[in-house]
Write a protein that binds this DNA or RNA. Sequence first.
DNA 1: CTACCTCGTCTAATCGATTAGATCACGGAT
DNA 2: ATCCGTGATCTAATCGATTAGACGAGGTAG
Lengths: 326, 326
Amino acid sequence: MSRQITVADVARRAGTSTAVVSYVMNNGPRPVAAATRERVLAAAEELGYRPNRIARALRSRTTGVVGLVLADALNPYFGALAGHVEQALAGHGRLMLIGNAGYSAERQRHLVERFLDARVDGLVIASADAGDDVAMHARAAGVPAVYLHNGPATGDTPLVTADNGQAVREAVAHLREHGHQDIAFLAGPQDTGPVGRRREVWQAATGGRGVLLRSGYARAEADALIRQLAATGEVPRAVIAATDEQAIGLLSGACATGLPVPGGMAVISLDGTPDSAYTAPSLTATGQPLAAMARQAVDLLLDSASPPYSPSAALVRRRSCGCEDG
Amino acid sequence: MSRQITVADVARRAGTSTAVVSYVMNNGPRPVAAATRERVLAAAEELGYRPNRIARALRSRTTGVVGLVLADALNPYFGALAGHVEQALAGHGRLMLIGNAGYSAERQRHLVERFLDARVDGLVIASADAGDDVAMHARAAGVPAVYLHNGPATGDTPLVTADNGQAVREAVAHLREHGHQDIAFLAGPQDTGPVGRRREVWQAATGGRGVLLRSGYARAEADALIRQLAATGEVPRAVIAATDEQAIGLLSGACATGLPVPGGMAVISLDGTPDSAYTAPSLTATGQPLAAMARQAVDLLLDSASPPYSPSAALVRRRSCGCEDG
DNA sequence: CTACCTCGTCTAATCGATTAGATCACGGAT
DNA sequence: ATCCGTGATCTAATCGATTAGACGAGGTAG
């Protein structure tokens, strides 16, 4: 618990001024003679000097921290997204503050305020809806922001999302190969954002044949839905679920009511998180390029160039659609 | 992007000194006359003053930020834990930095260093093993730390964990009720921490009958294990899985090889995260009191009093054990 | 030989909030 | 009338790093 080592200590030991130490530490705005640089580095090393990032932040107005606001931390889809964002940020030497809005607009706004108070260098908002434009507050404070999975298309704040149009068409085509004419679609409670677009593509691809189902995004809700349909005998023979969570709920509800999958109902999911491979039966799914999306969002935020990513991934055929391999 | 509002601005407007403004903002170390307080608050309100937390942090050596190091951010168990920690911290007005170690001791150490550089007020380490004592570095820097799910029992850093002894005994007893004599246990690759203790209790409770299985904690590994056992015809009739992830892998592997659950193999899991209710079939499991554990860890860190939590939760009977309800 | 430039370094102001010490006004006690 | 205590406020040092401006030494061009 001894006093912390400061630039002054290093400077004294190296026989220079604090300015030079700073120049060395940051490959500063001014050049330093090679010999001096060596002495400073040696002194810093010997003293175990660790720059105080708080002081640096105060002076240079940059904290090296980015905030991530999550719509639902408990949803593995967002969880995976968070993991990839953290990794992308680490690649840029940034740390990540995280907050869970739990689908509450009020709490989302609150988190943004708190993060701005903490002087984050940027804000990634993995929002569930395209409701109010929370990033506005960030812009007002001069802090860059990016919406990640969904968000209002205001044009002021970029939105990184996956266009799964191709994926949906592939899913429809594949279920047709299995002989299904009527293909249902399980959408979310509302229709904003990616899920809405997926629904539209499904509608176009099926030409209106097949039922439109809706449930919340939690497993429990899709589970309850399928039980109810089973009770009334209205189970579709083939379903495309908008998200993994819903597909998993479908599977568990089907199992509980004795409805065989894929025999009684074929299922394809559209999120394709890694976990979808380990369901019973294993889910046929198209994967979203989560890592690429996260990287893109982070690059956009820190305005470094980013290689464009392929907006959709191929269909992975497993068992839930009726295929036999896997 | 105008200049930021500072204490000086507020002081000028309220006709006081900066000291008084500070006293008012923090219910400071000195009293302020009621009338003056009002004027200051009004001035702050009118100017839209937001204290600069960086400056405050520099001076008062406290950032209001706590770091959480996760063993595996993609594992829903740790994901849920993270969510609860964040919530507990929010209750104390603290923000949370998060980092994923991905089971790498090297990366865990690196994250701790980074967090210390960022001057966190405390560190929660949700570690997977009881290996090297990373919290040591925190102690050396005078930063309090807590191990959450697992960690070295050095006595220097508190460890908050659930003792599932009772839960394991219940699971064994319940499988016996279903007529099983030999009850296998699926443990992790090593035997440190909670999983190891669960295995010991299982050993004691079954008196050595039943096979000890091992696999990594990822779903894929448990899935592969059961496929292999099925191929050689060595499938146990009843298994207790140390974690949800492993139980889920068991289920998916069993389904893939046509092994019926619970008919051919009964399964009970010991983590009992919410998602275990939505598997096919639904998992019988004992739940860990994750929220209480998180709260306890946070309270310990910020040394506020914490109500003691019940160390284990009851067995939730679903389908994977052989029960018919649910 | 002087004027001027470059390179390396140092001095000191700055970021914005906190807080110990000094100051001042007012009352009550002696 | 004098002294002292109390409460309210102000002044200014402080946290630690960054960086613009000043400075001196050495070299080159005229």
